[in-house]
Each structure stands twice: as C-alpha cells, then as structure tokens.
Design a protein around this nucleic acid. Structure first.
Lengths: 220, 220
DNA sequence: TGGAATAATAAGGTCAGCCATAAGATAATT
DNA sequence: AATTATCTTATGGCTGACCTTATTATTCCA
C-alpha cells in the first residue's frame, strides 16, 4: 500500500463487515451467504471470517453462523455511512445514474478519511437516507435499519409505498428503476401468480410483472 | 480485490506513473528518485519498474533512468487529473485544509471511475488548476506542465508571483502555507545567504526565511 | 585511472487475500 | 436412521508488492 492514508482496516475487511450488516443487522449470517454476496468461495470466506474473528470484529460459531461484535458493527456502520454519503453526492450533485451509485460509491468509501466523511456530510446537509432510500448511519455510530417489509409479503389488493431498494447489483437496480420501483412510488398488488409465481403490480399507472425474488429487494 | 469496480491499473502502478510525471515530465528519472518519492527501497522500485516496462508503461534503460511511454504518460495524466479534481472539490466545497488536500485526494483518485471523473469535472466547472496552482490535465489527455521557475533560482532584489507549490508532503505544505507561500502571492527576494544558505523573502509585508530546498517547491 | 557513489541483479522471505481439491463434521429432510 | 446438503478444516498454490542481504555493474569525478 503506497497511498498516503492508511486505513485502519483493509478494503476486504470493510467489505465483509458491510456485507454482514447489509445481510442482516444484529443477526447471524451463514458464511455461505457471505461468500455468495462477496463473490468468493466459501473456503475463502471461512478463512476471512477466522481472521475477522481473531481481530474481534465478528464472532463465528461453527455451523451456526457469524455475527458482528460491537466493534465490528461500529466499523460496518462507518463504512455504510461513507458509502451512502457518497451515493448522495454522486446522485444529487454529479448526476450519476441511480443504478450505478452503489458500484461507484463502493470504491470511494474505502478511500475516505474521517475528516472527509464529516465534511461531506455537512456539505450534503446531513442527509438521513441515500438515493435508494436506505438510512445513513449517524456520525456517532447510531443506526436503525428501516422497519418495513419486503414487497413479496404484501397481500393482493393492498397498496404500499416504496421506502427503499436494498439491491446492490447494477443490473437488478436498473431493472427495478426501469419499472419505477424506486423510493416514494405507490404500488398496488394486482395479482400473485400461484406456485410462487410473479406478482403483478400497478405502479405509476402502469402494470408491472415482477418475480418474487426481485420483489424481495423492494422495501415498503 | 473485492470492490466492484476493477481499475485497469493497480494503485501501485498508478502511484509510480504519477510520481514519474510529477518528478519530471517527458524526461528521464533515476530509479533512485522514484524509490525515494514513493518511500520504497530501490530494490523494490527496480522490481516495479521492470513490471511497468513489461507492460509497456515505462521504458527503462539500465543506469540511464526510466521514462514514461506514450501509454504510460496517458495513464499518469489521467491519474493526475483525478487527483487534482478531487483536490478542487475537497478545497472549494468541503473546506478541507489546504495542506491536507494531496493526501486525501490521493486515496480518492485510485477509486474513481471515468464517468465519475468527468461528472466531477463538470460539477466543478472544468477547473484548469488545482488549489496548489498545478495544472489539471484535460479529459483528452493533453497536459502542459507549468512553465515557471523555482523560487531558489530567482535573483536577490527580484519580485515574482507564486504560481504553484509542487510539494506533496503535508508538513512541507503546512510550513509553506504558514509563511503565505501559496499561489497568487507576491514574493521579493531580500537576501540570499552565502554558501547555499537560506533565502530571506518579503511576502505579504512579512519577512520570511526559507531554506533553499524548500524554495525549490515554490514555482514562480 | 582508480575509487566512491549509485544502480542493478540475485536469492530468499513475508503477508493478505484469493484459489482448488479433498476430507471430515453437522444439520436438515425424508 | 440414512441420505443429502451445507459447513468447516486441511493442504498446497498463486499473485502483487513489498522487504533484507549480498553481489555485480556502471558512472562520475577528482
């Protein structure tokens, strides 16, 4: 590492911790899920989890899953804060496409010193949510996840408002964006196909068919 | 590397190329200077230079020095562009201290996708110089270094205007900043101590004594 | 021209973070 | 209780970018 600022935690460490808090706050995560999310083999994820455990950032109970320690959760919140602040900046000021915010902000987050994070937050007017609707942890580390439910749990006939989109992959975000499934939209469940088939929705006056696994990314 | 965007060149590669263009544009650099600048041993620098040569980014003639190839210069300009644009943003919008711009921008530069770079440039109003007075390469790669001379070459009695400061170390920048040796200032050489002793300057009505090696960082 | 300084190469080592393959342990399902 | 799926551990390997120590080559200058 030749750059001037040496972060206390490596990019990998930050990514693992952030993935954990994204996958399930304050709960246990299967190492397999983590591996999937980070596109590494489960052997690699196990290795890394061991290292994180040794550093006191996570606690791994074999065959039961991993969870963040207090320290780990703090770091994860901090990473998430940086990421979502950058998303706000990229969206509101640079006009970056909604679906590419995550990928761009993700690189920047690991290169951001605390001084810069706080100055950025002030510049942005201390926003509380990112453009995807997800809450931004506060500077003191306090963070309460959105309490909503996923679109696939809404009953036929019901109407709900999109609070946030929890997807991170650009193609998934683009797909949802194209169908107007973005924060603030009103959605009515028109039909649910049998056998866990896709949902038919009414969004912004249009009918949209959405697979259940995609509906899981939409928080209402 | 687990982050989403994979840069075509590693952070190290970018740092070496940037260091080369900073040390001497279009000229040959001794590998030793490069090692010094990057705080690595000369053995490591030699290794890295070999790798860069194999990739066609530099051309190394043993015992003569290294120089950037066309390709290498393009990458170096691009890195420098990103860096200086971030410096503008950090200074003008986030209010980051003048002397810490380099260190903070340096981390960000390696995490910045081309789309973000160009959007940032537009946001900033396509600035041509960074807060330290150094020119920002254009998007098409064109870049002409400042043509000025260093303060230590100015004769006693002469007056000059500071164009830029080429230092990168935070403590050096702070030292110069404290003495008002920043772009735009008028400087008069009052006295040059014999035997390559320090210069006495008049800056903003104050008398300032400055060692020759520090004066080399000031472009007028 | 001979020595000092500088540059380059060789050899071997470290570390993080990934990989594959294979074997063993536990959990879940039937 | 057995099978299957998932987890975990073991072993060995790789790469990039650094390190030290030691040797050899070249350049420069007096």
């Amino acid at each position: 590492m030749i750059a001037q600022i040496v972060q206390p935690f490596s990019e990998s460490t930050e990514m693992y911790l952030k993935a954990m808090i994204e996958l399930s706050d304050r709960e246990t995560v299967a190492v397999g899920r983590l591996a999937e999310r980070l596109s590494v083999t489960s052997v690699s994820a196990n290795e890394m989890v061991r290292r994180l455990d040794e550093q006191g950032l996570v606690s791994h109970i074999p065959y039961k899953g991993v969870s963040l320690t207090e320290k780990g959760r703090e770091v994860a919140c901090d990473v998430m804060r940086r990421q979502r602040l950058w998303e706000c900046f990229l969206y509101d000021h640079l006009g970056v496409e909604w679906e590419r915010l995550y990928e761009f902000a993700c690189s920047l987050e690991h290169a951001t010193a605390p001084e810069v994070t706080e100055a950025l937050s002030l510049f942005l007017g201390e926003p509380k949510v990112c453009p995807h609707g997800n809450p931004i942890p506060a500077a003191d580390g306090s963070f309460e996840p959105l309490n909503g439910r996923t679109l696939n749990t809404v009953a036929v006939g019901e109407t709900a408002y999109v609070l946030a989109v929890s997807a991170i992959a650009t193609d998934v975000l683009r797909y949802l964006h194209e169908r107007d499934l973005i924060p603030g939209r009103e959605v009515t469940i028109v039909e649910a196909a049998p056998l866990h088939g896709p949902l038919t929705l009414r969004v912004e006056g249009k009918e949209v068919v959405l697979g259940l696994s995609l509906a899981e990314f939409v928080i209402v």
